[in-house]
Design a protein around this nucleic acid. Structure first.
Length: 205
DNA sequence: AGCACGATGCTCT
DNA sequence: GAGCATCGTGCTT
């Protein structure tokens, strides 16, 4: 649909080296860009969740550093991509200072560029309104785990976008943590754009 | 429109 | 061997 109107720089590492809630909140409205065989696939980020530290029992870092979660302990601005439920990839971006395991899970985008290519990957199904669907639509899998999303030339990165107003964003409990103990299960660490605001800004799906 | 369930394989106990 | 930061189907209101 829309083509890029100007070259834009990837969000810098300093953007991610901050409080995880602030990063999650600030990513809403930003653009997630995937370079796929030389073409841009992108969408506006409309839902994200915060996972913070070893004390957060909903976070993969809860049991300390392992082979799977090692990237989360590293430099901010890298992709933490993992496989779950035997079939789905999840995309996170590492946040906060190096050595402190924290990340933001990308849960949904509003597709903007390369919609036909995304649809080819997704079939006749909703495009990218869930973390697994998002990864499938953008062709993201474990090969991208550890990728530096702030490095020039990266095939996956973030771009600044039109921010959403505070009133356009709702917080709520994170999804899929049914067996995680309280308070972690219910903490409002999920951030998403109100549906009516999406309709207002983007029109019907 | 909503809920229950099965798929399917990796990670950690 | 259990559980999982999910998804699509199929069945019930």
């Amino acid at each position: 649909m829309t083509q890029p109107t100007r070259p834009s720089a990837a969000l810098p590492r300093a953007f991610f080296a901050r409080d995880t809630h602030l990063v999650a909140r600030s990513l809403l409205g930003a653009r997630l860009v995937r370079i796929d065989r030389g073409r841009r696939l992108s969408g506006v980020i409309v839902e994200a969740e915060a996972y913070i530290g070893e004390a957060d029992l909903g976070c993969h870092a809860r049991s300390g550093r392992t082979a799977r979660n090692a990237v989360m302990f590293g430099e901010p601005g890298h992709a933490y991509v993992y496989f779950t439920y035997g079939m789905h990839w999840m995309l996170n971006v590492v946040t906060e200072a190096e050595g402190r395991p924290a990340a933001v899970l990308l849960r949904a985008i509003w597709p903007m560029e390369g919609v036909a290519a995304m649809r080819r990957r997704r079939g006749r199904q909703p495009l990218a309104d869930g973390p697994g669907k998002l990864c499938q639509a953008l062709g993201i899998d474990g090969r991208l785990n550890g990728l530096d999303l702030c490095r020039p030339g990266a095939r996956l990165f973030f771009e600044k976008g039109k921010a959403f107003a505070e009133a356009d964003i709702v917080r709520g409990p994170r999804v899929g943590l049914d067996s995680v103990p309280e308070p972690w299960k219910s903490l409002p660490w999920r951030y998403r754009v109100l549906p009516e605001i999406l309709r207002q800004r983007f029109g019907e799906g």
